[in-house]
């Protein structure tokens, strides 16, 4: 846009659900990168923290015809009337105009959890406890991401620590434009299936923008109009239908830890 601030980007992802084999590497890479502690012994789907969570969704057919789609679900980076932003009484969530990333500032959060209720994707998590690592593992934290305290909400921010590093690298060369190769979120990097493509949706020539425009690409709950910047791809009709269906919470999630 303007030279002083560099070009405005809209970072987004396209995830190929036909490639994802549910190995879970992205979930672990994410937790290690973003200093998400191991779940407490009583943590459940509801009380644990998984910025990136891969759900195994069954087609509902019988053995042996049953089919499974693995759906990585995380902050969808909604662009339009972002539900969590509009409900936050603290201005602790904001959308960065330069990157399009929905940011969460834990220091501002007062822990009302309104955002968690508002999020249609269940992508927000609450720190029910102090972050605790076994002794020694707390010295293996990623120095680029600060751990969050008890009583605040958190979520995926497209590995903002890595964006910082990419920007600093560009700045050292005197540039405001980051090299796309320097900014790759941990989940994308860890995906051996190359199921996740990440990049700037504003750059029409980028792979992610091309895929987002392509056939068989869709977004989850697009009827809500929140314009997520995370796209999914599948050629399986039942998977596409699932994207618009209202998901019922699993029994495990509803259960109390």
């Amino acid at each position: 846009m303007d030279s002083e601030h560099g070009k405005n980007a809209r970072f987004g992802m396209v995830i190929d659900l036909d490639r994802c084999d549910g190995c879970g590497a992205c979930m672990i890479a994410c937790a290690v990168e973003n200093n998400v502690p191991p779940g407490h012994a009583s943590a459940t789907e509801r009380t644990g923290i998984t910025w990136m969570r891969v759900a195994a969704v069954e087609s509902g057919q019988e053995y042996p015809a049953a089919d499974v789609a693995f759906v990585p679900m995380f902050c969808q980076q909604c662009e339009n009337e972002t539900p969590c932003i509009s409900v936050c009484p603290q201005n602790a969530v904001e959308i960065d105009p330069a990157t399009g990333i929905v940011g969460q500032i834990p220091q501002r959060c007062l822990g009302c959890r309104y955002c968690m209720t508002a999020c249609p994707y269940h992508a927000r998590y609450f720190n029910w406890r102090d972050p605790a690592w076994p002794e020694g593992m707390d010295r293996q934290l990623n120095p680029d991401v600060s751990p969050r305290m008890r009583g605040v909400a958190e979520k995926c921010n497209f590995c903002h620590g890595r964006l910082h590093a990419a920007k600093a690298k560009a700045a050292a060369k005197g540039s405001r434009e980051i090299d796309p190769a320097d900014y790759v979120p941990a989940c994308v990097e860890s995906c051996f299936q190359n199921a996740i493509v990440f990049g700037d949706l504003n750059d029409h020539e980028s792979e992610v923008a091309k895929l987002a425009r392509g056939a068989d690409t869709f977004r989850f709950l697009s009827r809500l109009g929140s314009e997520p910047k995370v796209y999914f791809h599948s050629t399986r009709p039942w998977v596409k239908e699932m994207a618009e269906s209202t998901l019922t919470r699993s029994k495990k999630e509803n259960g109390h830890g």
Partner: peptide, 14 residues
């Protein structure tokens, strides 16, 4: 690693 609780305990992935 205890962090693998993400796969088995905090999600139904494995």
């Amino acid at each position: 690693s205890p962090i693998l609780s993400k796969l088995s305990q905090e999600s139904a992935l494995r």
